[in-house]
Design a protein around this nucleic acid. Sequence first.
DNA 1: TTAGATTTGAACAAATATAAACAAGAGCGA
DNA 2: TCGCTCTTGTTTATATTTGTTCAAATCTAA
Lengths: 247, 247
Amino acid sequence: MTTITRKRKILEFLSQNEEMEVTEMAKYLEVSDITIRRDLIDLESKGLLIRTHGGAVKIDENIAVSFQDKSVKNAKEKDFICQLASKEIQEGDVIFIDCGSTTFELCKYIREKKIHVITNSLPVVNALAHSKVKVNLIGGELDTERMAMHGMMAVEHIRKYQATKAFIGVDGLTTEGLFAHSEKEAEISLNIAAQAAQTYLLCDASKIGKKSYLNFGGIGLLHTLITNADDQLASPFRTLGLPVLNK
Amino acid sequence: MTTITRKRKILEFLSQNEEMEVTEMAKYLEVSDITIRRDLIDLESKGLLIRTHGGAVKIDENIAVSFQDKSVKNAKEKDFICQLASKEIQEGDVIFIDCGSTTFELCKYIREKKIHVITNSLPVVNALAHSKVKVNLIGGELDTERMAMHGMMAVEHIRKYQATKAFIGVDGLTTEGLFAHSEKEAEISLNIAAQAAQTYLLCDASKIGKKSYLNFGGIGLLHTLITNADDQLASPFRTLGLPVLNK
DNA sequence: TTAGATTTGAACAAATATAAACAAGAGCGA
DNA sequence: TCGCTCTTGTTTATATTTGTTCAAATCTAA
């Protein structure tokens, strides 16, 4: 059987079943586990399925959007970044957490810390609601798409707080500065940064070098960049005097 | 079965049921309790459900765990009250909705109205998030028990808004006034009432005649009482000049 | 409130899955 | 045939998942 036929069979199986297991599929197609695994790596890179530990699941539009794409895709990178970030947080800190999928992942690493979190993100509030963290929510208009608070009232509210650290996200980062795809988001991020003693940018490697439509601030805004990017990718920022945490 | 499939099944179950129990789910999915618990920890960290002692509850409509038992109690009465209340709301209104199990029920009757809702209650925000209603959330400290915003900042925030109508709840109501079991709740209710042209009290019959520890205002605060109580129970309030809607 | 039952989290151990590096074999063109 | 690439499988080390045990926390009912 050719490679392509085998991959086709895997996809065919997945179109009729929710999931498949590596070992089962290996037995069925009479090849070794590693071969199936390599097929899955390839098929996943083409966006035709989602790998899991032990197998793969089909892309299901309903769940894929809310669950897979946002939370699990790039999960490793985000996890890594958030673990680094969480080490920067000490007991007693008052921290801002911006809305966004990367910053959201930070929640799971700080649930047990005795700190104060101020955020405009409802998912963050939910994630921290029954933890040891004290939560303050920024008021204002609800942006239902991001489930976050925005607008004039929100900005005004942010300005009343003073935090030790802020954790923000972006859509793109170059040596020219920070990029967002929405003005409202940028406004919140800027104000959060202004009210914190130290501002950390959480940014995975895929966003470095990427420009989005709005450049909303220079990298002078930041105190530290936390990323999974390697030293080579990080060096331009270090050269500009921005400390980079990447290991 | 792979990990992700199992988690999907849990979410699927929760989408069709209000809640789930760890031991039941473990039996059903043929894994140990601790595995389910670990799944729940993960899903909770992603904001997809909320863990409870013994299981989990779904997140979209019933975000507030503490409402679970309350909202079932007297549900019919509350429904009746909220239907009456919803008839008082016209297109273009800007309304305050207080936190509380009774006021929460109001949400389902106003989803299709083109109005503006200002609230300090997260369950209300979630219930209205993807409806025709525009939502403003009051910022401040999170009270995790009620999933509502409280505190100085919240009060300050409320004072910046001006609404046409306010819908508040209480723990007890007598001709002597309104009773709450928490100072913080009372503070919010008072301020909401002060910023609205008209204040409606939603109060089921079981609370009439009941005193709780804090009397936080006279009935002069109110413009209308909406209740399921019969005319006999309502008459003392009518005598004092308070309009009562009960049919 | 207190006592008893249940649920939970932490630490450990075992089973399983994965990645990386290397080796073997097939196919193919010169 | 040789030399090359591509695919596949093996080995080994690492990572992940799962279940067990037990102490602590939490709930419930009197």
